[in-house]
Write a protein that binds this DNA or RNA. Structure first.
Length: 490
RNA sequence: GCCCCCAUCGUCUAGAGGCCUAGGACAACACCCUUUCACGGUGUAGACAGCGAUUCGAAUUCGCUUGGGGGUACCA
């Protein structure tokens, strides 16, 4: 069997969408599983809608996800160039071949004429199919139209190709994920393969590129199913080997509509910015339509690739549920090595003066605050009380905890006793326990005791482990803050 | 309108005629653990869209209906 070659061909008209990322992932997994090659091709035929900024975003996002390509615009390869706009000199040659073989013809119809045909079809409740009115234009007629200044587009002759290669008008193909798919070619109008301005259309350019790049398997979204029939016909008309196709269900938003910006993040780079780990994103997206054979859902890409079976991908659409992604993300954050986590957290701590903390203190702070993080960005709101001499007290905490008489008693006592404590983790742990004990004897619950201290030093009732917190704050600052919360000056 | 695809808990899914009184994960809820919050642990609730057909037997096969998605461009 020849080498498996798959590709991802994004159009740089926006940042890399998670849907595209999933398609890229499945192509990547298929390539890895079959020891094949994964090719990246940029489809920027439509110059108006594309930009270099998006190309860069696509590169960066794919790399961040770990979906490294074997051939592409930046790394090159034997079948380049890998950017469609750089391939424009390739396309006319095959157009000519199609013209010569009679599988294509010039069309001089104006947009108005075409529009009229469509309206008529709608009025008659029929599927719109191009009338083929330009199919048999004589040379004189063409010359006349040209003289009028009309520039022809080139259309593909569907019926001719169908008859040349198939007995029935029903065109079938065996889809890698959906099984046998079919379509009546009589319902496919002769479509344009080269615009009147000389630019190739999508359906034509992909075929040429896929054929020339020796792509063996085309794995893409099911929104391309209707294109597949057209493409198969072109492959055949040009004598190219038709690749296998596999169509994936779409990713939908929770409201079952197309996943768009109003639902939250949609671009990979948005997710990264919000504090998602690309490992979590990849893992999550792999689970949309595919299930691991051992039921173990959390696993790295390599393990997924080894277990990947394209025939077992679900053929239905799936909804992008942020909840599970968040769970996955928290899981991956927990697995992060301390040093890595520290570095990844820094971009979310820019509002604080990190020089206030020694590396040791910073490490400790992260250790005691990392547990509940769902997103890396959660760290921002989790640590304000580690900085500055004073701390902002939440108004509710003030009235419901600090203003309590028992809290005041505890705090006054704490300020006095803490002066004498040796400020080490072990000792603090013991002293705190002892401290809770003495107040318990006086009828104040350990919980209330701890809350009072926590509230005074952090301004909150929830947060990091107490011992660690006091350790990072240091003796002087802890007592300072505790004292400030005492109503009666000592 | 026309064409195509899809259909198991709220969500992602396991399930390829008897193993299914349908399994797992996320979310929800309850309890436990606990110096707060969290983490963790245990448990509860929750689905085969409907109707026909085939069969001794159907979530699994077929048809229809309904619902959802996609395509209908000189966009990609």
């Amino acid at each position: 069997m020849s080498e498996v070659r798959v590709r991802i061909a994004p159009s740089p008209s926006g940042n890399l969408h998670v849907g595209t990322a999933r398609t890229a992932l499945f192509n990547y997994l298929f390539a890895k599983k079959n020891n094949g090659k994964f090719v990246l091709r940029i489809e920027d035929t439509d110059a108006e809608r594309t930009s270099q900024e998006y190309v860069d975003n696509i590169f960066d996002s794919l790399k961040a996800l770990g979906l490294n390509w074997d051939e592409g615009p930046d790394v090159g390869g034997n079948y380049g160039p890998y950017t469609q706009s750089e391939r424009f000199d390739i396309y006319p040659k095959y157009i000519q071949e199609l013209l010569d073989k009679g599988f294509a013809y010039e069309c001089f119809c104006t947009p108005e004429e075409l529009e009229a045909e469509k309206e008529e079809a709608t009025a008659n409740k029929k599927a719109y199919v191009y009338s083929k009115k330009c199919e048999n234009l004589t040379d004189e007629e063409k010359a006349k139209l040209r003289a009028e200044g009309r520039k022809p587009a080139i259309r593909f002759n569907v019926a001719k190709a169908q008859k040349a290669f198939h007995e029935s008008s029903i065109l079938k193909f065996d889809d890698l994920v959906k099984g046998e798919l079919q379509m009546d070619t009589n319902l496919i109008g002769d479509f344009v393969i080269m615009k009147s301005n000389g630019a190739p259309t999508y359906n034509y350019a992909v075929v040429i590129d896929d054929a020339l790049m020796k792509i063996t398997h085309v794995i893409r979204g099911e929104d391309h199913i209707s294109n597949t029939y057209k493409q198969i016909l072109i492959f055949e008309a040009l004598g190219f080997e038709v690749p296998r196709f596999g169509h994936l269900g779409m990713i939908l938003a929770p409201d079952r509509s197309k996943l768009s910006k109003r639902h939250g993040a949609t671009a990979v780079s948005d997710f990264v910015e919000q504090g998602y780990l690309t490992e979590a994103l990849v893992n999550f997206v792999a689970l949309l339509g595919w299930a691991p054979s051992d039921g173990e859902e959390v696993k790295p890409v390599d393990a997924i690739a080894a277990d990947f079976r394209i025939g077992e991908i679900s053929s239905s659409n799936s909804i992008f549920e942020y909840d599970k992604l968040r769970w996955m993300n928290s899981h991956y954050i927990k697995m992060l090595p301390m040093d890595t986590l520290k570095e990844m957290l820094k971009p979310y701590l820019t509002r604080y003066d990190l020089t206030e903390l020694s590396d040791e203190q910073f490490t400790k702070m992260v250790e005691i605050t990392r547990e509940p993080l769902t997103l890396l960005s959660d760290i921002t709101e989790a640590v304000p009380y580690f900085f500055g001499q004073d701390v902002e007290i939440d108004p509710e905490v003030q009235t419901e905890v600090l203003d309590l008489e028992e809290s005041q008693k505890v705090l006054n006592d704490f300020v006095e006793k803490a002066q004498t404590w040796e400020w080490t983790e072990e000792n603090l742990h013991n002293k705190l326990e002892e401290f809770r004990g003495t107040w318990k004897e006086q009828g104040i619950k350990p919980k209330a005791t701890m809350w009072a201290i926590r509230a005074a030093v952090s301004g909150r009732t929830r947060g990091a482990d107490m011992v660690g917190l006091l350790e990072v704050l240091g003796k002087e600052r802890t007592i300072h803050r505790a004292q400030k919360s005492c109503k009666v000056a000592k």
